[in-house]
Simulated assay, not measured.
Amino acid sequence: MNSNSEQFFPPTNPASPSFSPQQKRGWVKPVLIGVAIAYLALILYIPAFNVFAQAFKGGVGAFFSNLTEPEFIHAVKLSMIIALIVVPMNTVFGLCAAWAITRHHFPGRVFIMSLLDVPFAVSPVVAGLMLVLLYGRNGWFGPILEAVDINVIFALPAMVLASAFVSMPFVAREVIPVLEEAGTEQEEAAKTLGAKDWQIFWRVTLPNIRWGLLYGVLLTNARVMGEFGAVSVVSGNIARKTQTLPLFVEEAYKQYQTAAAFSAAVLLAGLALITLVLKEILERKTRIKDVE
């Protein structure tokens, strides 16, 4: 009896350690967290800290004096002008595209949705080159524009077009899921009560999509203000003429004006931080709305 029981149930050694699978995998979580923190430190935290350290290396007074240089002020104004033009354009386009895609079924609908993602797949430099090949002096429309004395390339119109291209998908991509989730019941109910199309949009549709719309507008503005590749190709990077804030940072650094370059970079970093804070606020608003 004893021999049989020992055959099926071998005796355990009290001195030998026994570890559960959870204990054996207990080291995985700290290691993964450590790897993630180390990666973020090398890619994000340390470079960002160095930007701020270099910007304030000469003191707060030197930092603010760099922000009063004429080239810097013109770059900020030009970036704001482009944003004031492009953001409303892409907001209207995004709303129209989202409405057409979610509220109508037509041939080529999937293809149009795929076209919205083209700016994500195409390099900004390639996008700028496409504009040059279209509107440049030797481009398709170059002779026509030259005949009517209209400058597109190396001027504000090309910079607006380039910024509009790279930031085109954000509003549409944020509004489409919200419209699909909201459905058409409330809009159809308002229509049966006699509401007109514009009344349905302002009083029913827009309140339902407001947080997603604001999120898309926020991302669009951040992309326009920080765009470098496409704008650098079509602008010529001419100081006090076609130089935006990101171009000013690159040119100042190349000219060994490191203090001015880092000061402008701090301003762009501040814009990014504001974008992240507003993004978190809008995401919380969206989660609260979903719970309700």
Score class of each variant (00 low, 15 high):
residue 8 F to M: 08
residue 26 G to A: 15
residue 165 F to R: 03
residue 263 S to N: 08
residue 281 I to Q: 14
residue 86 V to H: 06
residue 119 P to W: 03
residue 272 A to M: 15
residue 135 Y to I: 03
residue 39 Y to K: 06
residue 227 E to M: 10
residue 122 V to G: 06
residue 200 I to M: 09
residue 271 L to S: 11
residue 213 L to C: 10
residue 271 L to C: 14
residue 7 Q to H: 01
residue 89 M to W: 08
residue 80 M to D: 00
residue 65 S to N: 09
residue 253 Y to W: 11
residue 88 P to S: 08
residue 292 E to I: 03
residue 273 L to Y: 06
residue 281 I to V: 15
residue 194 G to M: 02
residue 164 A to T: 03
residue 100 A to H: 00
residue 257 Q to G: 04
residue 282 L to V: 05
residue 179 L to F: 01
residue 165 F to Y: 12
residue 289 K to W: 07
residue 6 E to Q: 14
residue 182 A to V: 00
residue 109 R to Q: 14
residue 152 V to N: 06
residue 25 R to S: 06
residue 254 K to G: 06
residue 183 G to N: 02
residue 101 I to Y: 04
residue 269 A to Q: 13
residue 204 V to L: 14
residue 229 G to I: 13
residue 226 G to A: 12
residue 129 L to Y: 10
residue 38 A to F: 12
residue 143 P to N: 03
residue 132 V to R: 01
residue 216 G to R: 05
residue 209 I to P: 09
residue 152 V to M: 07
residue 225 M to H: 07
residue 59 G to R: 11
residue 90 N to R: 03
residue 9 F to G: 01
residue 275 T to C: 11
residue 46 I to M: 14
residue 22 Q to A: 09
residue 110 V to I: 12
residue 144 I to F: 12
residue 133 L to S: 02
residue 73 I to S: 12
residue 161 L to S: 03
residue 225 M to L: 15
residue 238 I to E: 06
residue 139 G to C: 07
residue 244 T to L: 05
residue 55 A to C: 11
residue 124 P to G: 14
residue 185 E to N: 03
residue 32 L to I: 13
residue 117 D to V: 10
residue 175 V to T: 08
residue 245 L to A: 06
residue 25 R to I: 00
residue 243 Q to M: 11
residue 150 I to W: 12
residue 192 T to C: 08
residue 237 N to A: 09
residue 269 A to I: 09
residue 77 K to N: 09
residue 39 Y to W: 14
residue 53 A to W: 13
residue 260 A to R: 10
residue 182 A to K: 02
residue 64 F to Q: 08
residue 137 R to I: 00
residue 255 Q to C: 01
residue 135 Y to C: 01
residue 149 D to T: 01
residue 86 V to Q: 04
residue 215 Y to Q: 15
residue 167 S to T: 10
residue 202 W to N: 13
residue 94 G to F: 09
residue 166 V to E: 04
residue 200 I to E: 06
residue 90 N to V: 11
residue 220 T to M: 07
residue 100 A to R: 05
residue 195 A to M: 05
residue 69 E to W: 00
residue 187 E to G: 01
residue 88 P to W: 10
residue 110 V to W: 10
residue 104 H to Q: 10
residue 275 T to Q: 04
residue 190 A to E: 10
residue 111 F to L: 15
residue 225 M to P: 01
residue 203 R to S: 15
residue 177 P to C: 04
residue 222 A to D: 09
residue 215 Y to G: 15
residue 97 A to W: 02
residue 81 I to G: 00
residue 275 T to R: 01
residue 139 G to M: 04
residue 218 L to M: 09
residue 113 M to N: 05
residue 246 P to N: 08
residue 110 V to F: 05
residue 105 H to K: 11
residue 121 A to V: 15
residue 240 R to I: 04
residue 48 A to H: 05
residue 73 I to H: 02
residue 285 K to C: 12
residue 87 V to W: 00
residue 265 A to K: 02
residue 278 L to N: 05
residue 50 N to A: 12
residue 174 E to D: 03
